[in-house]
Amino acid sequence: MITLTQLIQSLVTGVGVGLIYGLVGIGFCVIYNASGIVNFAQGVFVMLGGMICHAILSKFGMPMLLAALLSIPIVAISGILIEVLVVRPMWNRGAALFAIILATLATQIMIERITILTLGDQPRSFPEFTLGGPLKIGDIAIGYQYFWIMGCGALMVGLLWLFFTRTTMGRALRACSQNRESAALLGIPVSRMLMVSFALSAALGAVAGILVTPTQFTAYNVGTPFGVNGFIAAIIGGFGNAAGALAGGILLGILQALAIVIFGAGFKNVAALTVLLLVLFIFPSGIFAGLKGKSH
């Protein structure tokens, strides 16, 4: 039987991991809104964030903050490369939706293999941002890293909100998501916005990867679970809705944490994938949209 301590502890870790899923889910939404494309290689950015940050830390011995700030733009550039080399040529030729999805999936495998060849296939981790801990409240122990995840996650969401509401580029992206033709007629360079969206969502993935690595580990193949969970978060929130994706991520994180307590850690991905299928079958436009739908 689950004790209260276990329950609270898994809720806290669930919210932490859920924020990570939410960030990946927002990454899906940013690209989808700008272009209608679903980038199946989204999880790769999480993997690259953790792996590149680890490589910089271990090779050059830089301080954590500097390594993180360096690896985020590197991953963003990889996002731009995917956009320029893979997605744009297909987009320009009017390729079928599933052909683009397939191409991004192939890109993910390609990047994973390149990562194995350059950085190795061994799982690795780096220390928590603040050493010491965990924080103890009664029987409940919470690692300091979870506070970092929650703090930085909230900060990212705030920054994103400012970006989308206060900057010209953010507003242009939102205009693209509402109607690409009219956005183009208003002089917004729609295809450049596609590149911006890839860079932005890659950067989001990188932040997620750097934040989450100290709590577990990273390896060339962690991308798929994060990508899939981020996708589930986006689906729960009603695809394309960034706030919904964040809420969906937190919900999924909590569900998974409970599933680990009840069924054991091995089946947490099976549980998440089952949630995905159920949500797709029962609420194809998202749980929150399903609740809100009555008001329309």
Binding site: M90, A99, A103, A106, I109, M110, R113
Partner: peptide, 16 residues
């Protein structure tokens, strides 16, 4: 060890 990379490149080029 480049085999999967080659497949992926071939596939993406064909798709394009």
């Amino acid at each position: 060890e480049m085999q999967d990379i080659a497949y992926a490149i071939i596939l993406v080029s064909i798709l394009i």
